[in-house]
Design a protein around this nucleic acid. Sequence first.
DNA 1: AGCAGTTTCGTACAAAGTACGATACGTTGT
DNA 2: ACAACGTATCGTACTTTGTACGAAACTGCT
Lengths: 226, 226
Amino acid sequence: MLRAAVEVADAGGLAGLTIRSLAQELGAKPMSVYYHVAGKDEILDGIIDHVFSQIELPSADGDWRTELRRRAASARDVLRRHRWAISLMESRTSPGPATLRHHDAVIATLRAAGFSLEMTAHAYALIDSYIYGFALQEAALPFEGPDTVADVAESIMEQFDADAYPHLVELATGYYFKTSYDFGDEFDFGLNLILDGLSAALPAESAEDRESRPAPDYRRPGTLNP
Amino acid sequence: MLRAAVEVADAGGLAGLTIRSLAQELGAKPMSVYYHVAGKDEILDGIIDHVFSQIELPSADGDWRTELRRRAASARDVLRRHRWAISLMESRTSPGPATLRHHDAVIATLRAAGFSLEMTAHAYALIDSYIYGFALQEAALPFEGPDTVADVAESIMEQFDADAYPHLVELATGYYFKTSYDFGDEFDFGLNLILDGLSAALPAESAEDRESRPAPDYRRPGTLNP
DNA sequence: AGCAGTTTCGTACAAAGTACGATACGTTGT
DNA sequence: ACAACGTATCGTACTTTGTACGAAACTGCT
C-alpha cells in the first residue's frame, strides 16, 4: 500500500500522487483506498515514515564519525531517490515509528561518542540541517546528471543580462563548466568539515586519538573524493 | 500583486493560496488575475523571487564572517516568516533576478575574502545547505514558540512506547524540557562552527588576523547567544 | 443456506485551475 | 462628438482533485 504510493510519487512526483492514480496502481477503484486509510494526510504521513525507514541506522558501537558518515550518505541517497519527501517533511508534523527510531539511533551514536546532552542537541541540529539542506538544493537543481549543467546555466543566462552577475558568471565559467563538475561531490566536503568541527567539541578525546588523525588541510585541492 | 500573493500564503499557507483567494485579496474576480500572469506557476516563481529579494545582501567590503552571518540571520528570518517558501524552492527551477543577484553577492563576498573558485563553491554549498536545512527543520516543528515543546512531545510519546526510544527520551527529558529550550538558538552554534571551519581553508590569512580571534571552545556551555 | 463482518465500489458534491469569449474602460484620431 | 482600438475585467463552464454517503460484493463461520 505505502510501497505503491511511494512508487507513484517516484514516478510522477507529489502532484502525480492522487487517490485515483494510487488506486489504479493498486488495481482498484478510488474509493476502495478509503477503507484502508482515513484520508490522504494519513498516506502522506505513512510514506514519509516509509522513507525514513529506508535510511541506514548508525551503530552506537562503531567509530562515531564513520557511522554518522554512513547514515548521512544513506540519507542523502534516499532523499535523492525520493525528491518529493523533502517538501513533505516540512508539512507533516506527526513523526512515525521509523522516524523516531531513526532519531533515537543517531542520538545514541552521539552520546556513545561522548557528547554531552547539550552538545548532542547542537550536533544533531547541525548535521541534519546540513543533510536536509543539501538534499533540498540537490532536488532544486534543474538537471539530473553532470552532463547538462552548462546547458541549463546557459539558458538561464540568456534570459538575463550576464554582466549583471559578474561573480556568478565567473564561478560558473571558471569552475562549474570546467571538467565535469558534479554538485553531489560537494556533500563530502561539508560533512567532513562539520564532523571535524564537532570533534573539537568532544570533552574527553584522548591525545592518541587526536594525533592518529592528521589535521585537515582544506587548502589542498582535489581532496573531495579520495 | 506578488505582495498580495505573499500575504495570502503567509496567512493560509501554500494550500491557502488559490487563484480565487488571491483574487479576493485583490478585490477582483478570479479570472481577472489571468490578465497579469500566465498561470499559477508564474505566480509561484514570482513569490519565490520576492522572498529572495527580502534577504539582506552581504557586502564584499566588510569582514566576510560578519557579512555572511548577517545574511544568514536574515535568510533564516525571512524563511521563518514565509515557511511555505522552503518547499517551493524545491519545485521551482527557474531563478528570478533577485535570486541571481543574491547568489552573486554571496559569491562576491566569498571571493573577496580570499577563497579560491573551488573553495567558494564548496563554502557556498555548505553554508546554504545549512541555512535551508535549518529553516526546513524549523518549519517542521509542530509548535511555534518555546512554550509548548513539552506538550507536543508528550502527545507524541503517548502514541508510542516511550521505552522504545530511550536516547530520544533522555535527550528530551534531560535537555529539551529543561529551562526554556528554543530550537532557534541552535542556529548560531552550527553557523559559527561552519564559518570557523571555512576560515581554516583560507589560503592567505595573516597571522595577526588569526590571533585576534580567540580559538573557539565548544566545550564551554552557554555560549550560544553571547 | 444464512448471517455478520470485511472490503469494494458507484454516484455525487465541493473546491481547484483555467480555456473561451464577452464586456467595460481609457485613449486617440478625426 | 464619435468611432476605433488596446487594456483590463469578468461570467460561464469544463476538468481534476479529495472525499462523504450508502449500496453492493465478498469472506468465513455456523
